[in-house]
Amino acid sequence: MHKQLYRYLVIFIGGLSILLGLLGIILPLLPTTPFFILALSCFARSSPYFHQKLLKTPYLGATLQDWEKHKKIDKKRKLQIYLVVLSSFLLSILILRESFLLQLLLLLILSFLLFFIHRIDEK
């Protein structure tokens, strides 16, 4: 029973990640690739069918296959991720100029994100 519940929960998270990734294609401030990588990871643990479907998608399939095989991201894609993360966080910091603590929290989160993005190998 617990395994079945876990499987459905992970499939749900993968599906939600795909929806957020698709939304990221439309909205320039929402990153696409990290959501699809999360979905790929979820489906690898829960549904071989959805996992294979995601690997064969026309738009991101090759990038996801590279990620799965080599755990690397294309240099151009990594630069795009940097720009989207930086612009969205800086815009949020400007909007929240009345709250120094929230700005500080956003800067802290931004620092961690940039650190982890930097650690991803490039191909």
Rank of each mutant, 00 (worst) to 15 (best):
I117P: 04
S47K: 02
I120M: 09
L54T: 01
R7Q: 13
M1D: 13
Y59K: 10
V84G: 04
L27V: 06
L102Y: 06
T32S: 02
S41N: 15
G24N: 03
Y82V: 11
L64E: 01
F115W: 15
K75M: 10
F50W: 08
W67H: 04
W67I: 06
I117R: 05
I13N: 02
Y59R: 09
D74H: 08
W67G: 05
I37F: 04
P48F: 08
G61I: 02
A62M: 09
P48D: 11
K78E: 07
I25D: 03
F100I: 13
F35L: 01
K71S: 15
Q80N: 15
I13C: 06
V85F: 09
L38G: 04
R7E: 08
T32P: 01
P48M: 09
H118V: 04
P58S: 14
S47I: 03
R7G: 00
S92P: 06
S111Y: 10
L94M: 14
S17F: 00
I26W: 07
L64C: 02
Y8F: 14
K71Q: 15
A62T: 10
L23P: 00
L30Y: 04
A44Q: 11
I11V: 10
Y6L: 14
M1L: 08
G61S: 04
P58N: 08
K56G: 01
Y8N: 12
F115M: 12
G15N: 07
K75A: 15
V10G: 01
L20K: 05
L90H: 12
I73N: 02
K53M: 08
L107A: 12
K72H: 09
T32R: 00
L104R: 09
L5T: 09
F50M: 06
Y8G: 06
Q80R: 14
D66T: 15
I120A: 07
L90R: 12
K75S: 14
A62H: 12
F43C: 03
K3N: 12
L101Y: 11
F100Y: 11
K123N: 14
L105Q: 11
Q80V: 11
Q52L: 13
E68P: 00
A39V: 04
A62R: 15
L60T: 00
T32D: 03
P48E: 12
V84K: 08
L30D: 00
Q65K: 09
T57C: 13
L20Q: 05
L104K: 13
K123G: 14
L102E: 12
L29T: 04
K3C: 11
F89S: 12
H51L: 06
F100W: 13
W67E: 04
D74W: 03
Y82C: 10
L29M: 11
L55Y: 05
K71D: 07
H70S: 15
I120S: 08
S88D: 10
T33C: 03
G14M: 01
V84I: 15
E98W: 10
T32W: 01
F100N: 07
L90Q: 15
K78W: 05
K75I: 11
S88M: 09
L113R: 03
E98K: 13
S47N: 10
T63M: 13
Q80C: 10
S92G: 13
I25H: 03
L20D: 02
F116Q: 12
F89K: 07
S99V: 07
L113I: 11
L104D: 13
Y82A: 05
I37T: 04
T33A: 07
E68N: 15
L60H: 02
F89L: 10
L29H: 07
L96G: 05
F116E: 15
F89D: 06
S92F: 09
C42K: 00
T63G: 09
